[in-house]
Design a binder for these strands. Structure first.
Lengths: 238, 238
DNA sequence: ACCTGAACACCGTTCAAGT
DNA sequence: ACCTGAACACCGTTCAAGT
């Protein structure tokens, strides 16, 4: 019996760059970075490789466009970026950070590529929007202008580092097979930490319990709060 | 005229897993993740693919081994991990962080893979060593045991996020061609930030000057200090 | 036990040809 | 202007065969 191949019927709507990017995001979500191939894309879009190359210059650009689309969406879902309420910048930083965290967890393939994409599009792409959203709250926190760049960068780097690590953990747990889910992955890692040599790893061993029991979002927000506390202690009176 | 191919002469020493990993690191350093292929590896080691597969199960494992080797080296170069001087945990955190930062900058291919490798080898690999080295200093800072995991994680995530972004920036600058070096990359990014719409990006525009003038290491350490200040403010008296 | 190298099933990308 | 699909130069991995 031949595979169903439900998408192979003739395409009715025209091929556009947006439709290609959308299909790329779907493939990435379903099967990770390995899942995005021009063959899979042509099959899903019922077309040939040449048609895709008409709209998109190459695979790197396609990956960049997919990253851009998904991050832009996450930022748009955050608090209204043009009118921060000056009484709650801390809450807004938490909300924005959590939005990025959630987006990276929804699209784990972002983890390995976000840094590269931010570097590539540092001028025109998504980086200025992230820096602007968080930078405004840093300003509202009372940080003087000389500190904006350091404080905002620290926030961005923490958020991307933590979210990236989280997504990588999730991807690893998933790749270990369907018998090992997220909590099973945490459990087995915690058990391994507890089994380390007490001479060499006293601190890691005593962190194992917290690793096992922690909630990802809570842990992530705890780190955001730590960075915020550092910003306040360093730059502002209270 | 045939290409020189200076490495193609007969191999004198035996093939070992270590030599393969070493060659893999060299290829990654020279040409990035795209530079690591089994063909390049067989040519450089004067052997066939089957020989490599005898020592290494597949490319993913080879990449993991290369990451492990390079991070282990960076950690070993840090302050002696078994006897932290309790009077200077702050300085030791800075030194350890800077060691990781430098390693990732020396080997930019780490940027895209470190999160995945940490997740993979969370039990046996390099993650426990990073958490142990930084965790001991967090303990020495006076943080109570309940805070060790959150504080250490925040530090690790900031360090990996910042170093990863920095390496990605460097890789992008390099890939833009030999006419654009690191400072040229910063300059053109700063200029682009200054050219953004003043209505939409007031804060980013005013950060452009600091972006142009900043020193990477200083900026990185400034972030480390911010996180440390947050840890102190949250968990310790002073 | 360790290595060889041809072969397989892929992959991104190009391009002459069609409409 | 937009699309087709065969073809090209790769890639990771396998495996019968050698030593």
């Amino acid at each position: 019996m031949a595979p169903p191949n439900r998408r192979a019927q003739r395409r009715t709507d025209a091929l556009t760059r947006d439709r290609i990017v959308e299909a790329a995001v779907d493939l990435l979500d379903e099967a990770g970075e390995r899942g995005l191939t021009f063959r899979a894309l042509t099959e899903r879009l019922a077309t040939g490789p040449g048609a895709i190359y008409w709209h998109v210059p190459n695979k790197d650009e396609l990956l960049a466009a997919a990253t851009d689309a998904v991050i832009a969406e996450a930022l748009a879902a955050g608090p209204h970026s043009d009118a921060p309420r000056s009484d709650a910048p801390r809450e807004e930083v938490r909300a924005l950070s959590l939005g990025l965290f959630a987006a990276i967890n929804r699209h784990p393939w972002l983890a390995g590529n976000l840094a590269a994409q931010l570097a590539r599009g540092a001028s025109a792409g998504v980086a200025p929007r992230i820096f602007e959203s968080l930078g405004r709250r840093v300003r509202a926190l009372g940080v003087p202008a000389e500190g904006w760049f350091v404080a905002t960068s620290a926030l961005v780097h923490y958020v991307l580092g933590a979210a990236g690590q989280n997504a990588a953990n999730a991807a690893t747990a998933r790749s270990l097979g369907s018998d090992v889910d997220r909590s099973g992955f945490l459990e087995s890692t915690a058990a391994a930490w507890e089994g380390l040599d007490p001479e060499d790893f006293p601190v890691v061993r005593s962190m194992a319990g917290q690793l096992r029991d922690h909630d990802d979002r809570e842990q992530f927000l705890g780190g955001v709060d730590l960075v915020l506390a550092g910003i306040t202690a360093t730059y502002a009176a209270g």
